[in-house]
Each structure stands twice: as structure tokens, then as C-alpha cells.
Amino acid sequence: MVGGDRTRAFAGVAIAAISILMLAGCAESSGGSGSSITLAQTKSPTQLLRNETASRVPTAVIAEVASSEDTSIRCKTEKADPKGLMRSWKSTVTINVESGSAWRTKAVVDEMAASLVTDGWEASKGFDSAVQVTLLTSEQSAVGIELGANQPEEGSDKGATIYVSTTGPCVATAGEDSTEIRDLEGQGD
């Protein structure tokens, strides 16, 4: 739901908030390690939060949704976890910005971050460059948000993009090549 109306966005926020609070409660019940929850249980709240966050992009600046991805990722290095048993769910979307709005891409991402801060999230911003990254966390959520703005130099043949990524908590799985992971990623036999 990118650029949806505010009524749907409010409903999305409510659903995401309930899911995230439930997820946070599960993580806390295991001493914060997330070991009592499964990757399947983290998938939907992570996706919902990505969708709700992306819905904060104003419709007028969207040229197209270039790509989206839902996958599990390693939480630890290959050396620390050779079998890739500890994993997080990651949901991303990349939005191409209308050429007439490219000049304000960073401002749009700043506005999105500010609206999340108003909702109780804490933001930390990376270095200001052609690619701007803002990370958001909340004590009420086991899922983190990353917002990115790529605003190329004037005269560049590349267009501006907005990137939204959410990453769930690290949980124990059967490993990256397991049926569990293949099924969650839609690669079942």
C-alpha cells in the first residue's frame, strides 16, 4: 500500500502496532533473545510495518514501485553461524520518484522519519551524501526500520529513489537451506 489514503494507513498502523506489540511480547518472554518465536511469526509483522511505512510516501512523488522483496537473512557472520541457523525476516521496497519531484526526495524521507518519530520511534541519521539513510527503532517493537533516499547529482541519468526496509528480530531456524525457509520465501518444492 504505497501512497494509500490516510484511512487505510491508520488501519495499517493499528494492525502493524498490534502485530509488533505481540511480537515484542514474545521476544521479551524469552529474555529478549527471540528464541521463543519462529521466523514465520516474525514475517507478517515485518511485512506489515514495511507496507505501513511505505504508505507514508506521498502518491504525487511516486513514479513506480521498482521492486519489493521478502526474504530471510543471516543474523550472524558465516564464521559465527556456519549453517545460517540464526535468521531475521527482511522486507524491502524501492520506489522510483517522479522526475519532477526528485529534488525533494531527501525531504520526503525526512518527513517520513519525522512522522515515525511522532509515533514513538527513535531515529538516527547517517552521513549526508547522495544516499541518505535513517534508521528507526522503538522500545515497543522488535522490528527495525531503515529509510533511504538516493538523490543523484543534477545531470545524472539515474533517477531518485526511496528505499524502505524492515528487519525482524533474530530467531533460531532450521537453516537457510531448510524446508522452513524455502516455504516462507515461497520456494517450496
Rank of each mutant, 00 (worst) to 15 (best):
N150Q: 11
S19F: 03
P169Q: 00
D177W: 03
D128E: 15
S115P: 12
A63N: 02
Q132M: 13
M22A: 14
T94I: 07
T71P: 13
E64G: 03
T118K: 14
Q151F: 09
D157A: 12
N150V: 05
I37D: 04
Q187S: 13
T53D: 08
V97T: 00
V133I: 14
T42A: 15
G186N: 02
R74N: 08
D119I: 05
E52W: 14
S30T: 04
T118N: 11
I145D: 00
C170W: 01
T46V: 03
S165I: 02
S30R: 05
S138T: 03
G126F: 02
P152A: 06
T59Y: 15
I181K: 04
G84Y: 01
A142M: 07
D5W: 01
Q140L: 07
K83C: 08
L49Q: 04
D189V: 09
P45H: 05
A54R: 06
R74K: 07
G4E: 12
I73Y: 09
G25Q: 03
A60Q: 09
A172V: 12
G186A: 03
W89C: 08
I62G: 04
G4C: 11
I62Y: 09
T59K: 15
S99P: 05
D70T: 06
L21V: 03
L136K: 01
S19T: 07
E64H: 04
K83W: 00
T71E: 15
V109Q: 03
E52G: 08
A63Y: 05
E78H: 02
A11S: 10
D128I: 07
L135Q: 14
S33K: 09
A172Q: 15
G31F: 08
L184G: 02
I62L: 09
V164F: 07
A17P: 14
E111F: 00
I145Y: 01
M86E: 15
C170R: 01
A102D: 06
D70C: 04
S129P: 00
I145M: 06
P45F: 00
S91W: 02
S35W: 05
P58T: 03
E98S: 10
I162L: 13
M22D: 14
A130R: 09
A80E: 15
E98M: 13
S35F: 11
V61L: 10
E180D: 11
A9L: 15
I145P: 04
T92R: 12
I20P: 07
T173H: 06
L147H: 01
A60W: 11
M1F: 13
I18F: 12
A63F: 04
G100P: 01
L39H: 01
T167K: 11
L48A: 06
D70Y: 05
R74S: 10
F10I: 11
E111W: 04
I62S: 05
A27D: 13
M112I: 09
R56H: 11
P58F: 00
S36M: 12
S115D: 11
E154A: 13
E98N: 08
I181F: 09
A142K: 02
V13I: 11
V143P: 09
S156M: 02
A123D: 06
T179C: 08
